[in-house]
């Protein structure tokens, strides 16, 4: 697996020059997100250019307020940039209208959030097939069965979220994220609310999705252990990319974090 991502801490200089590489599942080019105006303006993203390779698990790390969640939300079409471009497989999300953006999220993106991932009134099975049901698409039964076995929830399909443990709930969320075979799965602190064992299970699951199904996963985390599951880590601070690690070890991750936070 070749990782062709170019990390430029001073990315604003040459943002437009970056081509939409076919190997990038999703990328941000000179992404800026500003809250407020004038002196009160806060730059959550201050010119980020970064790509995320297809078929890889990439982690975004950074201290609180680094803009990592904002970047994820903008990459996933949940939020819009003040300036700059997000390309999802060559589609410029910035020019899409609300309706088209919704369709992109539904058909081309999968989500795993930190908490409140599931609709409490629906069963595990209904939660998994939710994106397909919303699209009125038929469920690929073989794929569904395979997913259910991978996440190990065969016996819990008829249960409602309240009857599942936190780890089980996150596994259901992973299955839902994968069910429509999206181009990218975005995970926002997917293990943030889990104990370490349940967290490890979820991370192994995401890892497996990348390895076995060739899924692209972009994950925001502040946990070095979680990040070490990734093929590559992109570090953010003060709304800018400040470095990256390929095939990281937890120790290296911690070192890097310490450097950034200093």
């Amino acid at each position: 697996m070749t990782l062709t991502t170019i990390v430029r801490p001073d990315a604003d200089a040459a943002a437009a020059a970056v081509p939409a590489s076919s190997a990038e599942a999703v990328m941000a080019i000179d992404a800026r997100k500003t809250y407020g105006t004038g002196d009160a303006a806060v730059h959550a993203l201050d010119g980020v250019t970064v790509g995320f390779g297809a078929g890889a698990l990439t982690a975004i790390m950074g201290p609180s307020g680094s803009g990592k969640s904002t970047l994820l939300h903008c990459l996933a079409g949940l939020d819009t940039l003040t300036d700059g471009t997000v390309l999802l497989g060559g589609t410029d999300l910035g020019v899409l209208r609300e309706k088209e953006l919704t369709r992109v999220r539904r058909d081309r993106i999968g989500f795993v959030f930190q908490s409140f991932n599931l609709v409490p009134t629906l069963t595990a099975e209904e939660n998994i097939t939710l994106p397909l049901d919303l699209a009125r698409r038929d469920v690929d039964q073989a794929w569904f069965d395979e997913l259910v076995d991978v996440v190990g929830l065969r016996t819990r399909l008829g249960h409602r979220p309240a009857e599942l443990s936190g780890g089980q709930q996150q596994r259901v969320a992973v299955a839902r994220a994968l069910v429509s075979r999206p181009e990218v799965v975005f995970a926002d602190e997917p293990t943030g609310n889990l104990d370490s064992r349940a967290g490890a299970e979820v991370l192994a699951l995401l890892r497996r999705a990348v390895r076995e199904f060739g899924q692209t996963v972009v994950m925001v985390t502040h946990d070095a252990v979680a990040a070490s599951y990734a093929d590559r880590i992109v570090f953010l601070a003060d709304g800018r990319t400040v470095g990256e690690l390929i095939d990281p070890e937890p120790e290296a991750v911690l070192d890097q974090m310490k450097r950034i936070s200093r």
Binding site: K99, R105, P120, P131, L134, A135, R176
Partner: peptide
Amino acid sequence: TREIGLLRAVGMSRRQ
């Protein structure tokens, strides 16, 4: 509010 946000995030249209 949160549940509606979740539904919208995973692809429920405003119309739906």
